[in-house]
Nucleic acid binder design. Structure first.
Length: 400
DNA sequence: CCTCCACCGGAACGTGAGGAGT
DNA sequence: ACTCCTCACGTTCCGGTGGAGG
């Protein structure tokens, strides 16, 4: 039955973040800058190391991937050996893993664990130096790597002194503009020889990008006129995040399909916006530490029994009772306020300090997520299950 | 105008798990 | 195999405070 429906999509993959389009719109300046720096590789020189900055969804990864492919193509034509390696530091987040992965790209067999790090490094240097070549290492999400120490970067940045034939240069990609503050000054100056900034897209630019992709992703005429501008507008509010815009466009289509509509309409975009937000929250809540879940559950309970403004003291009282109910350690109030601040940061609750004069100073906490679905997610945690039938104590209920 | 509530939030410290170095 | 470090998570201690009520 579901299968009988014709899909609205021609090729949904085009809307996924992993897809790299052939033409990148509105990033000419960045592409040019990078190209100018990297052409020296084609002449057999070592290009400067580069740092790329820009928030999520500003095209950093797409541009570097694109440039990498172009460069390898060109180098083949010109018969220069130039290799571009793409490493995502979110996955490969330790010195060992990075070096092991690099070495493996050259056919070395390195075990997952067991070798001393410097031995892996030596092996890597030896293999790449066997012939004359330029190696460009793209380190995506480099800030993730730096958090675990910048030794790798230091080592890699001075690897050229040990090499006779080949040359290594690095491209760091980061969405944290301030991450260099944590770097060793030597690494900082060597890595940041050149910097390229990726500004957020504006709504117009996002619209262009969406049109380009929609043409390949959707069948002709299935998009209402307002769909693309609306996706663009939502994403532009969200600091010009093109990835978000593509997500919206894809999810809107999926929702329209589910309703068996022949066209994607404006309302589907709105629902998509909502769905993405809810999915995000569900994911965040699901992966919360148990104590935080319990605190959140407490806030839910209080809200559910009629409280508009929940205060720290009230939360802590109930929290303690819940703890003993399910046999968990009772944290101090100090700690619980910190947990609540974290929930605030995550956008799950909203906490404001208010003064009630004679009656002290406290934080008023309100929920910024839907009660029912959040509760649903929380009780999925087996440790919180026994709380499902917990009733508010009388003393508290009378407070209404 | 002063008081004093009920908490805020900084600082220093304790602990145990997990990596890196040797 | 061993120690040393770091880091996340918690605790203890405590000085600080906006404003209703006196």
């Amino acid at each position: 039955m579901l299968l009988e429906n014709e899909s609205l999509f021609k090729n949904k993959e085009v809307l996924r973040p992993s897809y790299t389009p052939d033409f990148l719109l509105h990033r000419d300046e960045q592409i040019n800058n990078l190209a100018i720096i990297l052409v020296s590789a084609l002449r057999g020189d070592t290009p400067s190391n580069i740092l790329l900055y820009g928030k999520t969804g500003t095209g950093k990864t797409a541009v570097t991937r694109h440039i990498g492919i172009e460069l390898e193509k060109k180098s083949e034509e010109m018969d220069v050996s130039c290799i571009v390696l793409y490493m995502n530091c979110e996955v490969i987040d330790t010195q060992y893993r990075l070096l092991a992965n690099l070495a493996r790209q050259f056919g070395e067999e390195i075990p997952m664990t067991g070798w001393p790090t410097d031995q892996v490094f030596a092996r890597f240097k030896k293999t790449i130096d066997e012939k004359k070549q330029i190696i460009i290492i793209i380190l995506d999400e480099i800030d993730k790597l730096v958090k675990k120490g910048d030794d790798v970067l230091y080592n890699l940045s001075r690897v050229n002194t040990d090499l006779k034939n080949s040359k290594v240069s690095m491209i760091g990609v980061s969405n944290d503009l301030k991450f260099t503050e944590f770097l060793d000054p030597r690494v900082k100056s060597s890595l940041g020889e050149e910097e390229v900034i990726f500004p957020p897209y504006d709504a117009e630019q996002i619209s262009d990008i969406l049109r380009q992709r929609a043409e390949k992703a959707y069948k002709d005429g299935v998009l209402d006129d307002m769909v693309i501008p609306l996706c663009a507008a939502f994403a532009a509010q969200e600091h010009g995040d093109a990835r978000r815009a593509l997500d919206l466009l894809r999810v809107a289509g999926e929702l329209a399909e589910r309703e068996n509509k022949p066209k994607v309409e404006e309302k589907h975009v709105r629902s998509a916006q909502e769905k993405i937000e809810i999915d995000r929250i569900v994911e965040v809540v699901r992966t919360l530490p148990t104590q935080s879940k319990l605190v959140l559950y407490t806030i839910l309970l209080l809200r559910n029994s009629g409280y508009r403004n929940v205060t720290t003291g009230e939360v802590y009282n109930i929290y303690r009772q819940l703890c003993s109910r399910i046999d968990m350690d009772v944290l101090t109030q100090r700690r619980v306020t910190d947990l609540m601040s974290e929930l605030d940061m995550l956008g799950i609750v909203n906490a404001v300090v208010v003064s009630k004069g004679r009656y002290g100073r406290t934080k008023e906490i309100s929920l910024s997520v839907p009660v029912a679905s959040t509760r649903q997610v929380l009780v999925e945690d087996y440790r919180l299950k026994p709380l499902m039938d917990f009733k508010m104590p009388m003393a508290v209920q009378m407070h209404l």
